[in-house]
Nucleic acid binder design. Structure first.
Lengths: 226, 226
DNA sequence: CTGATGAAAGTTGCATGCCAAAACAATCAA
DNA sequence: TTGATTGTTTTGGCATGCAACTTTCATCAG
């Protein structure tokens, strides 16, 4: 079973990267459901690599919180309670708010162009495909939008934390009661406001706008004490 | 070269854990200096495990930011500039401030006892051994002190971020100009104040005290815009 | 039928080997 | 001497095999 691929078309990284993307995407699209068991051998076979890179990929996903690993036990797709989702957005608000504040004073014109371009793309695929069709692409663009701001904050640690510890499968949005189209339109407005604040170089505004954006996700009133 | 150890005395986890602790401790104590190359085979041999668990351990350390990995390149011990250290403490202030705020309403009496016990221990070993002797033990107890508060915040993600993305080798303290004894004494006072705030169940106070504690590390005035 | 028990099957943890890419060294041209 | 070039050595990336452990399932006592 030697499926060595000396040059696999549009391949970017190594086998770990392939496995990582594959599994992550399966989780993100809901193909792998919360709580579902993850068997190294099966995944390896399915992806076309050996167990070693699959193990590394699962390790990474475990760090990111998308997968739960326990010694000698089968991995599982993590499941996210509403309160966990809320907590993630609270933490992201703290960190990305901080990031936006710093970014307001450091962001370059070309980064702002990039943000505007990303936002245009998001709006255009939303207009073309509607919510359900655009979920996966939206996730990607939206992640890059936030990552661009974080990187403008010039804090590699912040980058890493946001990229690795505070990601959620976009499928969680499907649990919300609010019509998804409404939520999406609001998201776009908020993105534009954040861009405005960054363009103006106003740290307070940028932080506040980012906070508003992230905390608006928590529409369901949450009864626990702050 | 089969150094299999069917039951290795007071062993806790697996080979990965052994490798992880070994390498981490070497970095933390300064045995491995910043920028030093990390060769899988050499480490594996030295630790007494194979390369596979060493690779996993390095992966973990890379996620934690203590090690820098790049595909096909030798790993290196990360090096921490003053501005990175400052940024870590700013991020910790945001996150642990949030944690302390939540903890103030949730912490249990037994957790408070635990904090007081930890603080007593820290002060006692400091009194006995002075700064240089107590560095490694202090690091351990101090980490548990902060981890206890974070866990009282009842936010597993926060736990994981603090444990994995915002750790620094305690050796960085040696770069500060301020006499270490002074700094340590202030740390103890601040710890006691944090405990007081938590005991009082006052979220604002707890957050503020935690912020004061973490931001006081940045004694060197930093000229960059916030 | 229910819960305990133990063997068989399945899965993960780790060691090892091979190959490809990087690091290094020697050689040569300018 | 210096910088480029090529050949050699070193080292990391991945596949695979075996051992340790968990899970499953059949069996049996109650």
């Amino acid at each position: 079973m030697n499926n060595r691929t000396p040059k696999d078309g549009a391949e970017s990284g190594g086998a770990v990267e392939i496995a990582y993307r594959h599994i992550r995407s399966a989780i993100v699209t809901g193909e792998l459901k919360s709580g579902e068991a993850l068997q190294e051998a099966k995944l390896a076979d399915q992806i076309g690599v050996s167990r070693t890179p699959v193990r590394e990929a699962l390790q990474r996903l475990s760090n990111e919180g998308l997968v739960v690993l326990e010694r000698y036990r089968r991995g599982q797709v993590a499941n996210f309670s509403m309160s966990e989702v809320a907590e993630v957005f609270r933490l992201r608000a703290k960190l990305e708010g901080h990031g936006a504040r710093r970014a307001a004073r450091r962001i370059t014109p070309s980064q702002i162009d990039h943000l505007e371009e990303l936002e245009r793309e998001m709006e255009s695929i939303f207009a073309k495909l509607g919510w359900h069709g655009h979920l996966s692409q939206f996730d990607h663009l939206n992640n890059e939008f936030h990552a661009t701001i974080a990187s403008a904050a010039d804090s590699p640690r912040l980058d890493r934390i946001l990229a690795s510890a505070l990601e959620l499968p976009p499928s969680i949005f499907n649990f919300y009661r609010e019509p998804l189209e409404d939520r999406t339109r609001r998201t776009h407005r908020q993105h534009r406001e954040i861009i405005d604040a960054l363009k103006a170089g106003n740290p307070d505004w940028a932080e506040a706008a980012m906070n508003a954006h992230l905390l608006s996700i928590l529409t369901d009133p949450n009864p626990e004490p702050e």
